[in-house]
């Protein structure tokens, strides 16, 4: 055709309009990227200011944390200790319970049972963490102190238990997804050899779903590490190096809340501890989330 049909050419106005819209939508997509950049920039720059005054080595290896007292010490290990105690304690509770719940739901439960239990677990997962904090103070701590008279009003065990309860649904649901993804043919092969349901579940299905289950564990630990309100209310505000679950401790997250609630002047060193501790928290959870992703993608092809 020597002459282009005008109707076939894109009208310039429409093209500009489409371009504008595409650009707008792209900007929306960028917001998430900007959020990540924002988090990193904020944490790093403010922490840089902090580390100009407090040597990094002291921060990472010091065993005393008392920024709000006259004798200021900035060793983060007590806070890390507290966070780890909560995370470990929570996992000791949540892993076995979550995994066995998942196995039951995936291998044993009838459709009807599953239809009742899964929503209940989702309700458990949807309860705000401050409510769990209340529950810890009002139920868990008194029961704990009845069994262990030496336990403090605030103690690590209460925090760990309630955080554990909080993440059971997460472990159960992700592990159940992993188990459901195991092809039925594998189970049939095992039954065909004369295996009982118990053996099929534990010696064929769980090993085959192991990467998904491991990923779910790591994500749950990450969640336990980032948990704030329950531990603020129940576990205490005393940063210390201890392994005694009956004592009060302080987690990184609880410390950040403590500082925010007080009247700490902007720009002061105490204020900057928010960012330094926040940075450590962010890096730890980021590492765990990346590890979990890695495990899922690396071992996903492992069935067929």
């Amino acid at each position: 055709m020597s002459q282009t049909d005008p109707d076939l050419k894109r009208r310039a106005g429409r093209r500009v309009g489409e371009g504008l819209i595409a650009g707008l939508l792209f900007t929306c997509g960028l917001v998430s990227v900007l959020t990540t950049i924002g988090i990193v920039v904020v944490l790093v720059t403010e922490s840089a200011g902090f580390f100009r005054q407090v040597p990094l080595v002291d921060f990472l290896t010091g065993t005393q944390w008392s920024p709000l007292y006259t004798d200021q010490q900035f060793g983060i290990l007590p806070l890390l200790n507290g966070t780890l105690m909560i995370a470990v304690g929570a996992m000791v509770l949540a892993l076995p319970i979550g995994l066995t719940s998942a196995i039951y739901l995936s291998e044993y439960a009838s459709k009807r049972v599953r239809g009742i239990v899964k929503p209940l677990l989702e309700i458990l997962a949807g309860i705000p963490t401050v409510v769990y904090g209340y529950f810890a103070l009002v139920f868990i701590t008194p029961v704990l102190r009845a069994v262990f008279p030496g336990a403090g009003v605030y103690n690590a065990a209460s925090g760990a238990i309630v955080v554990g309860i909080m993440i059971i649904p997460m472990v159960a649901s992700l592990s159940e997804d992993a188990l459901s993804a195991v092809p039925r043919s594998l189970r049939e092969a095992a039954y065909g050899l004369g295996a009982t349901k118990f053996e099929v579940s534990t010696r064929v299905a769980v090993p085959a779903a192991l990467s998904g289950i491991a990923a779910s564990f790591i994500l749950a630990v990450s969640r336990a590490i980032g948990e704030t309100m329950a531990v603020t209310l129940a576990a205490g505000a005393t940063p210390r190096m201890t392994l005694n679950f009956l004592e009060s401790i302080q987690t990184m997250t609880a410390y950040i809340v403590q500082v925010s609630l007080g009247e700490t002047p902007h720009g002061s060193l105490e204020y900057k501890t928010i960012f330094a501790v926040g940075l450590v928290l962010f890096l730890i959870t980021l590492a765990m989330n990346l590890l979990s992703n890695r495990i899922t993608t690396r071992f996903r092809e492992a069935y067929e």
């Binding site: 704030t228 902007h266 928010i274 928290l281």
Partner: peptide, 28 residues
């Protein structure tokens, strides 16, 4: 893929870190 992974990672960031971000960016 980058944006997608980024979103997935953001979903796993503790909520208190968002608070820190909000403090620095929106409040200040």
């Amino acid at each position: 893929r980058l944006i997608q992974t980024n979103i997935a990672n953001l979903a796993g960031v503790p909520s208190i870190v968002y608070g820190i971000l909000g403090l620095a960016i929106f409040v200040r």
